[in-house]
C-alpha cells in the first residue's frame, strides 16, 4: 500500500502529506523517484528534503529539523485553497464507489455507532487539492456502496457533482486498498478496479467490496515492490511500525 502510494507522487509535485501512512509514502517518494517533491504538513511545515528519521506524527522533532519553512496552519491551508497543491493523501474509516470518505462515525446494522476521530485536515485536502489518493484497509464494511456520512468529498453522487456543490477543482484520483487499486476514471467518476495486488484472488476482492465490480480486461496485477523499494521501506521503518 505504502509503495503503491509513493509511486503516485511525481517528481516536482507539491504534496499535502496527511497523518499516519502518508508520512512514510512521502519519505519513500522523496528518497526514490521524486527527489524534488515538496511536502506540506498541516501543522505549518514545508519540507524540501526528507526527514532523516521515521516519523510517527508530522510534529515529530526530525520533521521540524531541516524544514524549509515552519509557519502556521493557515499558511499551508491557504496555499492548498489557492490551488498550489498537486496531490493530497487521505485515510478514512469508510470509502464509497464515488470516493466519498467517512471518518466521522459509522452506523452499524444494530443501530449502534462507532465514533471515529473526525476529519482532521482530510476534508480540506479532499475539497481543495488538485487530486487525491486514498489509503483504506479493504473489507466490505469499509467499502460500502455509499458512505453514511460524507466527511470528505469525493465525487458525491457522481458526474459533475463537485462543480454543482461549488468545489472548484480536484477529486479522487485513486483508492489504494490492502487488496487492490481503484482509479476514478469511469464516465460517471465512479471507481474502476485498475489492479489487484499479487496473491489476492479476484473473487475475494469482489465479495469484499460493497459495490459491484465490473470485470474488465484492463484489470491487471499491481506491480510488486521492487528490491530497491523494499530495501528502503525496511530501512526507514525497521521495526515495522507502519508496515507490520
Amino acid at each position: 500500500m505504502v509503495v503503491t502510494a509513493a509511486r503516485e507522487i511525481k517528481d516536482g509535485e507539491v504534496v499535502y502529506v496527511g497523518m499516519r501512512l502518508p508520512l512514510l509514502a512521502f519519505l519513500m517518494a522523496k528518497n526514490l523517484h521524486a527527489p524534488s517533491a515538496v511536502g506540506f504538513y498541516e501543522n505549518g511545515l514545508i519540507r524540501e528534503t526528507p526527514s532523516s528519521e521515521l516519523l510517527f506524527t508530522m510534529g515529530d522533532p526530525p520533521n521540524i529539523l531541516g524544514a524549509t519553512q515552519a509557519g502556521d496552519m493557515l499558511n499551508v491551508m491557504g496555499m492548498l485553497q489557492s490551488g498550489r497543491v498537486d496531490i493530497g493523501f487521505l485515510g478514512a474509516g469508510e470509502v464509497d464507489k464515488f470516493g466519498n470518505l467517512n471518518s466521522t462515525a459509522v452506523h452499524k446494522v444494530d443501530g449502534s455507532i462507532v465514533r471515529l476521530p473526525g476529519s482532521g485536515g482530510a476534508s480540506d485536502i479532499a475539497s481543495l487539492a488538485k487530486r487525491t489518493v486514498m489509503l483504506v484497509e479493504h473489507s466490505k464494511r469499509r467499502l460500502p456502496e455509499r458512505v453514511s456520512y460524507v466527511t470528505s468529498p469525493g465525487y458525491g453522487d457522481g458526474g459533475d457533482w463537485r462543480q454543482q456543490v461549488g468545489l472548484i477543482r480536484g477529486g479522487p484520483s485513486c483508492l489504494i486498498t490492502t487488496m487492490g487499486v481503484f482509479r476514478f476514471d469511469n464516465k460517471d467518476n465512479s471507481a474502476r478496479l485498475e489492479s489487484i495486488h499479487p496473491s489476492v484472488d479476484s473473487s475475494v476482492i469482489k465479495s469484499e467490496t460493497g459495490w459491484e465490480i465490473v470485470s474488465d480486461d484492463s484489470t491487471r496485477s499491481t506491480q510488486e515492490p521492487s528490491k530497491e523499494e523494499l530495501a528502503l521501506i525496511r530501512k526507514i521503518d525497521p521495526k515495522r511500525f507502519w508496515t507490520a
Binding site: 485553497q81 466521522t104 476529519s119 476534508s123 480540506d124 475539497s127 460524507v150 466527511t151
Partner: peptide
C-alpha cells in the same frame, strides 16, 4: 479562530462544500 483574531464575524472558505460536516 482567525476570524475572531481579526474581529470579524466570519470568514469565507472554499472547503467543505457538499459535506455532512
Amino acid at each position: 479562530l482567525h476570524a475572531a483574531a481579526l474581529g470579524v464575524p466570519y470568514l469565507p472558505m472554499r472547503s467543505l462544500l457538499g459535506t455532512d460536516i
